[in-house]
Design a binder for these strands. Structure first.
Length: 295
DNA sequence: GTTGTATCTTGTTCCTATCT
DNA sequence: AGATAGGAACAAGATACAAC
């Protein structure tokens, strides 16, 4: 549905039948964002998918959930109930009037609407923005212009410019989250690495100085009490790739861990260090300094 | 004799250029 | 414009050499 195109099929006599096309603007009150769902499945979202489903934070930041102002109601819940009652009583009335207005003014709107959309878009997108950002901005612009037109034709009762202001605010929130998606990924990686050591740190790592044989089922690596301070985990390359980096790009994980100071690089600048291990000879391992929260 | 470091080799991945 | 091949870059294992 979000692609705006139906399946292309052949007609009965073998010719290409014209496929169905539509423009769809839908709003979903999903509790979890698309990227969160994909992350649960251990997959990445491509930029194109995030463009089709633009995430807007539902918390307006005023301490009242989705609302910014209460419009005279004592609290957010009573406003929500009032909106629900009014909409179940009057729903559809404005929509019909709106369509009537569009049809009556379609000649003049044909030039006016694209012009207004262009104006909105150039006003909100930052310089040197990616084309994807502009595409999302155009969708917000359509909503903004439609809202202003509805206000102009006395269908909403809003003050002039309110729809544009609202779309502006929502777009700014979206843009910040989209631009900060790298930060979101970074946090997810650090959380995963932390969880790995919290789960396996005491059970799957062997003491590097151990003289007696220890039985470590599904050994993930070794630990040593750090040269400077704290405990250092020496993770074997296969485990690092398969378990620590699971669901993420290995290079990205290494970069994030290096930047966070958790992964100690070797003297030769490589992310892994060569360490002599009991029974394994010298091997490359990823040295990760695990710090407790209070340090 | 052991340990640490440096260099070489091999394998893999990604990017670019060329051809169809 | 897309696909394929080749080259470059990087990582990891191996080996050699030096120092303690």
């Amino acid at each position: 549905m979000a692609n705006g195109q139906g399946k292309v099929r052949a007609s009965r006599n073998g010719f290409a039948r014209s496929s169905q096309r539509w423009r769809l603007l839908f709003l979903s009150a999903g509790e979890t964002s698309l990227s969160a769902i994909m992350a649960q499945a251990g997959k990445q979202t491509t930029a194109g998918q995030e463009i089709r489903l633009a995430d807007i934070e539902a918390d307006a930041g005023s301490g009242m959930g989705i609302f910014e102002t209460l419009n005279g109601y004592p609290n957010a819940a009573s406003l929500a109930v009032a909106i629900k009652e009014a909409s179940s009583k009057y729903h559809g009335a404005v929509g019909k009037e709106w369509l009537r207005y569009l049809v009556a003014n379609r000649i003049s709107l044909k030039d006016f609407v694209p012009e207004q959309i262009k104006q909105f878009v150039t006003g909100v997108i930052p310089a040197r923005a990616a084309g994807q950002v502009e595409r999302v901005a155009r969708r917000f612009a359509l909503v903004a212009v439609a809202g202003e037109l509805a206000t102009h034709s006395k269908l909403t009762g809003w003050s002039q410019g309110e729809a544009i202001h609202a779309a502006h605010t929502c777009f700014a929130v979206w843009l910040e989250a989209f631009g900060g998606s790298g930060n979101r990924e970074e946090r997810a990686i650090l959380a995963q690495v932390r969880a790995f050591f919290e789960t396996h740190g005491a059970s799957r790592f062997e003491d590097i100085n151990a003289t007696i044989d220890q039985r470590i089922p599904k050994r993930a690596g070794f630990y040593r009490n750090g040269i400077k301070e704290g405990r250092e985990f020496l993770v074997l390359p296969q485990v690092f790739r398969k378990e620590v980096c699971e669901g993420f790009d290995e290079k990205t994980v290494k970069k994030v861990l290096l930047n966070a100071g958790l992964l100690l690089p070797g003297n030769d600048g490589k992310p892994s260090q060569v360490v002599r291990l009991q029974g394994l000879g010298s091997s490359r391992v990823y040295v990760i300094r695990y710090r407790d929260e209070e340090e």
